[in-house]
Structures are given as C-alpha cells and as structure tokens.
Write a protein that binds this DNA or RNA. Structure first.
Lengths: 143, 143
DNA sequence: CATACTGTAATCAATTCAGTTTCAGTTTGT
DNA sequence: ACAAACTGAAACTGAATTGATTACAGTATG
C-alpha cells in the first residue's frame, strides 16, 4: 500500500525527531521534508501505529520518538510501511496454458522474496541515529 | 526510466526464449506474458541493445537468445533495464535551510546505493536458465 | 475560550503505466 | 512480383497512482 516515497520521508522525519527530545509539530517536519503537513501526518500515522513515535494532540502537541534513535533500524521502518515489493510481478497474470508462463509466478515470487530479504538485511545495518548524524555532518560539509 | 513491471516481463520473455533455439515472435511471447505484442517489443528493445537477444525482421522473424540461458544472470537483466532505484528519494528536495534536511539527500543516496547493490548481488545468483527450469517444473507441479 | 495542534475525509491535478491503433519497413515463400 | 508474416516506432487513450490541498471536526493548553 505504501508508495515508494514514503520510506525516505519517514526516515527523514525520524532523523529530525532524533534531534529534539520534545519533538516537533507536523508542519515543522513538513517544512524540512518539503511536503504538506496533512500528507506527512498520513505517513507518520504508520510510525505511530508501530510505536516508533507518539503523538500528542492539542496545543503544543506534535510528534516525538518513543525510544532512542539508535534503537530504530531502517529495516523496521521499511517493514512498518509495508512497502510494495521492489521486484513487482508482471502487471497481468501470465497465460496459464503456457508451460513457462504457468510456472513463472511461483518462481518469480521466490526470487522477489529473496531480494526483499536482501534489502532488509542491508537496512538492518543502519539506525535512525546513523542517518541523523550523517545528515547533519553531510549538511555541514556541503557548505 | 524502466517501470517496475518491465523486469518480470523481461525475465519471463527470456525464460520462454530459452525453450526454443529458433526463438519466438513477439505476439507469441506476448500471449504467454499476457500483454500486448507492441508493448512487449518496447521492453524487448532494451534486451536487444544489450545483446541478450537478437531480432529478425520480416516473415518468420522474431526474437531469440544470442547466448546460452545459463550465461544470462538476472542481475545483468536488471542493470540493462536501468530500473528505478528500489528506495526512491523524497518526491520533493528537502529544505536546504534545515540542518537535517540539507544533508538527507547525501545520506539517503548512500544507503539507497548500498541497497541497490544488495539487490544486484542476490539477482546475480540466478540465471535465465534457472528461471526457465524452475518455471517449467513449478508449472508441472501445480497441476 | 482562544490558540495551536492532530485526525480524517474529500477532492484535484499531474504523472505514470500499460494497452491499443496505425502505419511504415523488412524478409521470405510462392 | 507480390502476398504473408513479421518488427519498429509514433501517437493516442484510459486507468491507476501520487502527492498537494482544502475543509472541518476533535483535543489539549494557558
């Protein structure tokens, strides 16, 4: 269900929240991510459900991390968003009358799954803290 | 440039061509993949450019592999199609005034690149021959 | 009770994706 | 020579997706 851009947006938001224990409002985060606050809230909703961040309504409300940024791996974020598979299946189901076509979905799915695990394994090596530090120093260096 | 569905379509087509040394016409392949011949030709064009398959125009024309299916790794197919990154960057460029936002593209890009390499490494372990065999036996088993 | 937030539904425009039509060019068999 | 069976490519369409935006209800705070 989650579109491709959601992941980078989520990581960005989490890295931002890692900077401030008290958290930030959706519109503040949105201005850093350069998107609309309403849209961002839709994305952040997932992260709330999974428990990475918590939300406070009302005045002075906003979002903040529920645990240290070192404890949030990007693989968990990826999983939380229920991203579409990187290797999408054929748009239309193959012809079942064809000996190759009939078996393709099974084979392709197995490979797509393995690819997905490789992605998760790579993302598991990075935490939100890594991204936050990296982003800040990269930002400084680029000046 | 290549959309997500192109990869599975290409792999399917290649696996089909691995079945017959003389190759097949675009409409034959299209009926197995369950797509339109014209659209399929658009996808196959890439594989011709890279040299995995060759095309013959005119009557009795069509497509066929230029080398054994064991020698075509899925990673090469993936690269040939110049797929979009699995981890798409944020749709809009982050706010450069924000210390975190300004560094995000750099950091995210590095991680996205590493993920891409992990995908390629996984796909490198499979050849078109593997898929062709697997697809045929999976098709037989599912009956 | 005004202010500053979140939550959510609904709508919109732009883009993308794949399907389709059409036609020009090419090769082969008769 | 010509008809048949192909590929190549441009152009158009419809549907789906994506993210932006508006609007409004709900909620906590001072």
């Amino acid at each position: 269900m989650a579109a491709s851009g959601w992941f980078s947006m989520s990581v960005h938001a989490l890295a931002l929240l890692a900077q401030n224990r008290d958290g930030y409002s959706s519109s503040f985060i949105a201005s850093s991510v350069n998107t609309h606050a309403v849209f961002l809230r839709r994305v952040l909703k997932r992260l709330v459900e999974v428990g990475f961040i918590e939300t406070r309504e009302g005045r002075d409300g906003g979002y903040r991390l529920t645990k240290p940024s070192e404890d949030i791996r990007l693989s968990e974020v990826y999983k939380a968003l229920e991203m579409d598979r990187a290797l999408a299946p054929s748009p239309a189901a193959p012809n079942p009358m064809c000996p190759v076509g009939s078996g393709m979905p099974t084979v392709f799915d197995a490979i797509a799954l393995e690819v997905e695990q490789a992605i998760l394994e790579t993302l598991r090596r990075y935490t939100v803290a890594d991204v936050a530090e990296g982003a800040v120093s990269a930002g400084i260096l680029s000046k």
